[in-house]
Nucleic acid binder design. Structure first.
Lengths: 222, 222
DNA sequence: TTTGTATTTACGGTTTTCCGCATAAAACTA
DNA sequence: TAGTTTTATGCGGAAAACCGTAAATACAAA
């Protein structure tokens, strides 16, 4: 079993529960952090010791407060951690259920497991830790099917994503075209922008561009 | 201090933490429920006993799973509870930070306290329980100022809200006008709908209707 | 009731979005 | 390389959104 584990999570009510689970799994040392920056510091520090941290369990969203932060989310923490300790195992533990975000974590950030917060979280966390120990990828029960059915999202590329973001930010069609022009992106003409929006409307079954933005937000694409 | 408290929360890692806090506050009996429906049942059942539940601590969002549910959210639970036991004290404990939703809870549902899940949650929960015991209203630290600054939202009435919902659902301007016509709502002409959208765009500083929908979702209005 | 004010509605014109079509450019294939 | 397919662009017209204005209606105070 893992010797040393770090929990990055700002909800202190969760710490106790999580620690109990890990203790039952015979994990010797459990460190905690309430801020992403602290988590990164602890990981860096432990690298030069006899027993470095072997597993990071992290939430995705961390509340803002008075403290200045450089890392503001689990995603950023994960990216930073990969730089200093690429072999570190990572389990994401979050309420995030939007399949777009989760797919990105697994495919882009290469996290080892995703456990959704909810009724089965304790059981799922145990399974996840055991799976990760065996170098397996694990995502909680109800997610497996969702990920397969979310191919529509994979069909949206980074330009679609940018386009949706610009729409949500209040740019008009021709302003978006100008933006694409400036940034030297492909398919920058007004007509191409229009066609791209239309393609997305068909893909997400949206009647209007307002609904398209609502769906994109709901699915966690933007 | 309260004699009997019910916690409605589907994250089982949180239960332990909350229970510890409540025990420290000398609360004798702590009941828990993972589903809204179960919570309501327990409240109803306790009404006919010698010591009924005096305080309900509830989350807002409950995950869907295999079980059929009639009550699917904390908001619905609160509404149902008010019918059977109007004098029951209620503390909402949630990650919801969108001021629109929170304001509605306090003003419409008349909950006694709102504690935001996060770093200070334990301390805030203790404060909340003590305040509610003294018949006071309590909402966590960082919220007090936000609520005051959210007057813009109070300026949106139920028709604005409906309008935003219909926009997000993909109805066109004239379809919205027809909808208002059918439902016999005031200001049902196309021009009035347009003006209302325009008013909202000014209010929320949105350039386009797409951005307006994005902002409305972000602020928890729809 | 009258008067004044605010809201709602209708009309008309401008801008933006939407969409089909034709051509041009690019990517791909044999 | 030449031919084929896909993608991008430009143009024009229709539909929808946008916006000012004025008449009609609703509402409140006098």
């Amino acid at each position: 079993m893992f010797q040393k584990v770090l929990i990055a999570e700002d909800q202190n009510s969760i710490h106790k529960g999580l620690e109990n689970i890990l203790k039952d799994l015979k994990i010797k040392e459990i460190a905690t952090a309430q801020y992403c920056d602290d988590a990164l510091l602890k990981i860096k520090a432990s690298l030069n010791t006899a027993n470095p941290i072997e597993l990071l369990i992290t939430d995705l969203s961390f509340k803002e407060d008075h403290r200045d932060r450089t890392l503001t989310s689990g995603q950023e923490l994960i990216r930073a951690v990969m730089d200093v300790q690429p072999e570190l195992k990572i389990i994401v533990f979050s309420v995030e259920h939007r399949i777009g975000k989760i797919k990105k974590l697994i495919e882009v950030s290469k996290v080892d497991a995703y456990v959704e917060k909810g009724r089965e979280e304790s059981r799922e966390m145990i399974k996840a830790v055991r799976a990760v120990l065996k170098d397996e990828i694990y995502y909680s029960h109800n997610l497996a099917q969702l990920i397969r059915s979310a191919d529509d999202i994979s069909q949206t590329d980074i330009y679609d994503e940018l386009l949706l973001q610009l729409l949500a930010k209040g740019l008009k069609r021709n302003q978006i075209a100008s933006y694409f022009e400036e940034k030297d992106l492909p398919a920058r003409s007004l007509r191409s922008i229009e066609k791209r929006i239309n393609k997305l409307k068909v893909l997400f079954d949206a009647n209007t561009s307002e609904q398209l933005v609502a769906i994109a937000i709901d699915r966690g694409i933007i």
